[in-house]
Design a protein around this nucleic acid. Structure first.
Ligand SMILES: [Mn+2]
Ligand SMILES: [Mn+2]
Ligand SMILES: [Zn+2]
Ligand SMILES: [Zn+2]
Lengths: 138, 138
DNA sequence: CCGTTTATTGAAAGACATTTTCACTAGTCT
DNA sequence: AGACTAGTGAAAATGTCTTTCAATAAACGG
């Protein structure tokens, strides 16, 4: 079974057609999708899927760390699938593709410095990279 | 004269009461403000200020690098003043205060690594830190 | 399997947020 | 001061997200 099924089960949430549709749409997508777009695509799999349910599902999945919100220069967030835990994403300026990157986020040096300068105690961050994917560089 | 007046002049934009009001509101604020909030506060200085104009002004100022959009976990962006050029912000989880931090953003190591792993050519990033400001730590 | 229980769903309406239009206003430059 | 035009703001249109509530369908025990 896929991971999200386990996670939902473990937390006492039901595995429904709607949730499955949303998950499958996100799994097939390479770029961040708006709730609207997720709903449209999801209806190909589960025609009665409602936009309200998409919003609720995304909220739940975000809480469970199954999905992450991606911020865009202008109109703001779409959603991409994310492995649970703390991840970051690179976005392609050309085609919109989104890709997770693992690897240490070695922000520790920077964070220490900012704590020193500002007196803040830093406990979280939002980091996204942007550029051109290998395909769009050609 | 303040910096923004020069920047607008240089680009052939007019210095208007509305723009002045928006700028002064942002200069007085310590936390990111929504367009709504900017409009309300701006009307104390220029009573006929319209919300539409606040939106237009923020778009223009953002293009000119005079203002930056701040992303928030949930409901998304407010605006803060920014010195022109590339800056970053720390947000206080307690009181909402926003503070720019200068100092090298030493993401170069991280960026090199991600370019190696993914094949992307990285040319931009979105980085915001969050935590508790000195006041809210007490 | 077949009911029972209850989390989940989706349509409709409501609340907000943002954009478009267009006649009017007020900066800027003679 | 007057002309020119970028900029403004009210109203309406459009979008986005939330709330409500009766109906549905997962999950579970018999
Ligand atoms: Mn990180
Ligand atoms: Mn930077
Ligand atoms: Zn690309
Ligand atoms: Zn604080």
């Amino acid at each position: 079974m896929s991971l999200w099924v386990d996670v939902l089960g473990r937390e006492g949430h039901r595995i429904t057609r709607s949730r499955r549709a949303v998950m499958e749409v996100l799994a097939d997508a390479q770029a961040p999708l708006s709730p609207q777009m997720i709903c449209e695509r999801g209806r190909k799999r589960h025609p009665s899927l409602g936009l309200v349910t998409v919003y609720r599902t995304l909220d739940l999945f975000e809480d469970l760390g199954l999905v992450m919100r991606v911020h865009h220069g202008a109109g703001c967030h779409g959603y991409v699938l994310s492995s649970p835990g703390h991840r970051h994403v690179v976005l392609c300026d050309g085609c919109g593709r989104a890709e997770e990157f693992v690897g240490a986020d070695d922000l520790d040096g920077l964070i220490d410095r900012v704590e020193g300068h500002t007196g803040y105690r830093i406990d979280g961050h939002l980091l996204q990279l942007a550029g051109l994917c290998p395909v769009c560089q050609a």
